[in-house]
Simulated scan of single mutants.
Amino acid sequence: MSVATESVPVFAIAPAEDGQIAFPPAMEARFRPGLAAVHDEMLAREEVIALLCFGSAPRGEAKPKSDLDVLALTNGTEYWKRSRMINGVEVQLQVGPLQHWREDIEKGNPAMIDAFATGELLFDRTGEATALKRDAEERFRAGPAEPGPKFFQRQRYAITNIVLDLEDMAEDSLEARVLAGFMVLEALRFWCAAQRFWPNRKPWVMLRQLQGRDSSLGAKIESFYTSYSSVHAIAFTDAVLEGVGGRLYELSTDPEPVPS
C-alpha cells in the first residue's frame, strides 16, 4: 500500500515558535514532564520531522510502573535508541528515518502498525507522518493476514503435545502448575491469532480480547486463573482447540528449503 503525501497539508500540532505541546487527553499528569522534555529536544533538531507518542500512556491505560514510549521520525539515515528516567518515569525514545518506519508498516510489522494506528502525533512538519498514520490505521482496522493451514496444523499439534504432557503429571504438583500456566498462555496466543487480533506480548491484553469476544471461553480461563488447576487449564485449552478442529495427534509437513 503506497502512501501519498502530495495532498496532505503540513500538520503541526506543536508550533516550533512557542514550544507548546498538546498532551494526549487521556495521559496521566506523571508522564507530562518526560514527554515535554523529549518533545522540546526533538523539536529543536532540524532533522526530526515528526514525533509520535504511543503505547499505554497516551491511551490512559498505563500501570503504576509503565514507561513512556516515544518515536521520532527523521529525514536522516541513522537509527538510535535511548532510555532515561525523567521525574520517576522511564522514557524510551526511538529515533530513525521516516522511510524506515514506512517500510516496517508496509511489510506488516504488527508492533509498528499498532504504534502508529493507536498512538498520537505531537508534531508533523511535512505531513508525511500524518499520511503514514492514516495508512497504519487502515491496516489496523483490516486486521492481520489470516493464518494459513500450516500455522493451524503446527499450533494444534504443538499444543496437543503440551496437553498430553500435562495429563501425565500429578494434578497438584509444582511441575503441573508451571506447565499449566505456560499451556494456557500458548492456547490464548493461538486463539488470538486465529481470531486475527493483532499480536500482543501482554497476556492481560489478550485476555481482555478473549473475554470481550467469547464469554464461554472467558469463563473457562477465569476458572483456571482463580484456581491454577491443571483440570481447568486442560478444559480451556481443549475448548480453544475444538474451535479449530480439536486435538491433533499426528503431523506431516511438506519438504521446505533450509534457510540460508
Rank of each mutant, 00 (worst) to 15 (best):
L174D: 13
Q99S: 08
S229T: 00
T126H: 11
F116I: 04
Q99M: 08
G127E: 15
M42F: 12
E137N: 02
F182M: 09
D254G: 13
P149T: 14
L217D: 01
L207S: 13
R208P: 11
S230N: 07
H39E: 05
E128Q: 15
G119S: 14
V258F: 13
E90Q: 02
G34H: 04
V231R: 11
G212W: 14
I234K: 05
I49H: 00
A142Q: 13
P24V: 10
R59Q: 07
R30G: 03
K150M: 15
V10G: 06
M1S: 12
P33G: 10
G218L: 04
P199A: 07
L52K: 04
R59H: 00
K202C: 05
Y225G: 04
V205M: 11
A131Q: 11
R45N: 06
A129Q: 13
I159L: 04
D18C: 02
L251F: 08
A194K: 05
L98F: 08
T237G: 09
V184K: 01
L210K: 04
F236K: 04
P147D: 15
Q99E: 09
F197C: 11
N200L: 03
G243Q: 13
A14C: 13
V91G: 03
A233C: 08
M27T: 12
I86A: 04
K133E: 08
M183P: 03
A115D: 00
V91M: 05
S83C: 06
V240P: 01
A117R: 07
R208E: 15
D238G: 12
P58T: 05
C192E: 02
E46V: 08
R134Q: 12
R84W: 05
P97V: 04
D114P: 00
G119R: 10
S56L: 04
L132K: 06
G148T: 14
P257M: 00
I105Q: 09
A50R: 01
E78G: 03
A239I: 05
G243P: 01
L210W: 07
L241D: 09
D238A: 09
L185R: 10
L73N: 01
R125S: 13
T77W: 07
A180G: 08
E167T: 10
R156P: 01
V89P: 00
N109Q: 11
F11R: 14
A233T: 03
W204R: 11
